[in-house]
Amino acid sequence: MNLDNLPNISFCETDGSNVEQEVITGYEKIAGVTLAAGDPVRLYLESLAYILTVQRQVIDLTGKKNLLAYARGDHLDHLGALTDTPRLQAYFASTAVRFELGEVQTSAVVIPAGTRITPDNQLMFATDDLAEIPAGSLSIDAIATCQTEGTIGNGFIPDQINRLVDPVAGVTKAHNISTTLGGAEIEADDRYRERVQLSPEKASVAGPSGKYEYWAKSAHTDIADIAVLSPTPGKVDIIVLLKNGELPNAEILNAVEAVVSPEDVRPLTDNTEVLAAETVEYTIELSWFIGRSNATLAASIQDKVNQAITDFMLWQRSALGRDINPTELAHQMRQAGAKRVEITSPVHTPLTGRQVAILAHDGLLVTYGGLEDD
């Protein structure tokens, strides 16, 4: 069930003018009088109506926070507790770090656990475990984790983290050899709400797709979409897509595998395999025009249309199995102010649940055709 399709509800009247009218009309009926504007009694009742309106808004909000579609923050956490579905906490980014010696040593060189390196003397990464450079070797690789949670630790490419904070005798160089990944913020309300809604599925013993989807999304907050497919009896493929259409690394795939493979989650007859989404590349080649009546807004419209194209690319790669849809592209551009759009590519292309559409490298060619008569 899509929560967005549920009707809006209200637990009590919250419109201030209606509450005021109820209070004044009720008093006039009981007292048998008509209160003119400015009457001291009417002014008192108006102030009372304001207090009642505020209280009713609190009552209405309190009632709504007990419903999944409306709950936010701590109230949503309490609803999650009813189905043993805690909010996912923030994750720390990590990377592989190589420690190098200036020359071969005759004895092992110990890299203590917690040895820190940094890209900027502010953000720190520290080794998870003790590591040793064996005698006769020049280097050793170790996993280092960011000491600040969240996405701030993501995206440092190899060699960007290269300043050794805690000196180690003999070590002349330390640097990351892989891009930092895995950092994530605490689970946002909308994503958490989806998992709470899915949580009853985890009680099933028959292996429905919703159960696998619930557990897979519990593995990491960056997971945006899951497809559960069974190409043959007993074979279950779990396809993973991250936020913004990113593909999962081995760490996240292993995390998903770890939560869907236990026997209390997976029926014994199911053989699960966790896979990254398959990418299908497309290109954008189009021309577009602005109506002459909007000539004075041309610069603003161009900015909005360019943003609409960017938004389309994000929309296209944000879900598994989402067909490549030029109609949606034209619609978003028209909403942004384009009078006419001529699209050469992409063409409509159906995708399977294993696939996600990604713009090809150098695949964007947009031509603004100028003004034309309305």
Rank of each mutant, 00 (worst) to 15 (best):
S10V: 11
C12A: 10
D15Y: 04
Q21R: 11
V23S: 04
G26K: 11
Y27L: 04
T34N: 05
L35A: 14
D39W: 12
R42W: 08
A49H: 07
Y50S: 14
Q57L: 05
N66K: 04
L79I: 08
G80D: 07
A81D: 14
L82Q: 07
R87P: 08
Y91W: 07
V97I: 15
R98A: 12
E100H: 02
L101V: 11
I111K: 05
A126E: 11
D128H: 02
I133L: 01
A135H: 00
G136H: 00
G136I: 13
G136Y: 01
D141H: 02
A144H: 06
C146L: 04
I152E: 14
P158T: 07
N162A: 08
L164I: 06
L164Y: 02
V165A: 01
S178Q: 15
D190K: 03
R191M: 06
V196S: 04
S199I: 14
S199A: 15
S204F: 10
S209Y: 00
Y212C: 02
K217S: 08
A219V: 06
D222I: 14
I226F: 05
V228E: 10
V228W: 08
G234T: 13
E246S: 13
N249D: 15
V256N: 01
A258M: 10
T269Q: 13
L275V: 09
Y282N: 14
S287R: 01
G291N: 14
L297F: 09
A308C: 12
R317L: 09
A319K: 08
G321W: 01
R322D: 11
I324M: 09
H331V: 15
V341Q: 04
E342P: 03
L351V: 12
V356G: 09
V356Y: 10
G369P: 13
L371P: 03
